[in-house]
Amino acid sequence: MKRLFLSITKGEEIRFLGHLDFLRTLERAVLRSGIPAAFSEGFNPHMKIALDAALGVGVAADPMYMELRLEGDMTPEEVQARLSPQLLRGIRIHAVREAAPEWPKLINFLNEDCYEAEGPVTGPVDPAEIQAQTEAFNGLDSFLYQRVTPKKVREMNVKPMLTEPIAVRVEGDRAFVRFSFLRTRTGTVQPRDLWKILAESFHMPWTPGEFICSRCGAYHREGGLRVTPFDEGAFPAAEKAEAQ
């Protein structure tokens, strides 16, 4: 069974599709394209297709990584050529590559997500103040945040989950924050949490909850270095074995 990795976009036009809706849209495009996708066995066969993360409603992504298994043979070039004309506005294919059977699943391989959050500014904007608050936040070793949901209150230290200093900028009446989160198995801080923290505790000129978010990168981060599933040598052990 052939295994393919695809680098695609979940663009602005379809940011409001939830994970399952986006996946269904891709499945139907694959079916229309005539690509020999593989299916699971059983009463209710499912296409063997997976995305690198379950992004929420409202989150765009460029790139988004996708795995597709084929039951018949087809080159990555032909897959791209057949699938591209069947995609909705907002979905584009950057690249397709064949994946070795022993390569990990994308969801297990990737451990860092970079985002840009965007929202309307409220009140007067003082660039020096924004700069000072950003530095203050970046300079902290730890920041304890309580996430309150109807069911429970959860306390977490936000700082270890951030892999890089955050960057804030204001253009016209919109504010933008770039940040990178580590993926952990124990649940992680969400973009909305950071947006809220910055508004409430660091006096940033925006309102909690009033933002949209785009993922602008997903990486395997190790020793401070970032690799994507499309970088040469991304899967060193496996690729070395292949070369031999």
Binding site: E12, F16, G58, E118, P120, G209, E210, I212
Partner: peptide
């Protein structure tokens, strides 16, 4: 799009 973040099933 920020407005639609508060809407059920914005799609």
């Amino acid at each position: 799009p920020v407005w639609l973040m508060h809407i059920e099933k914005p799609a």
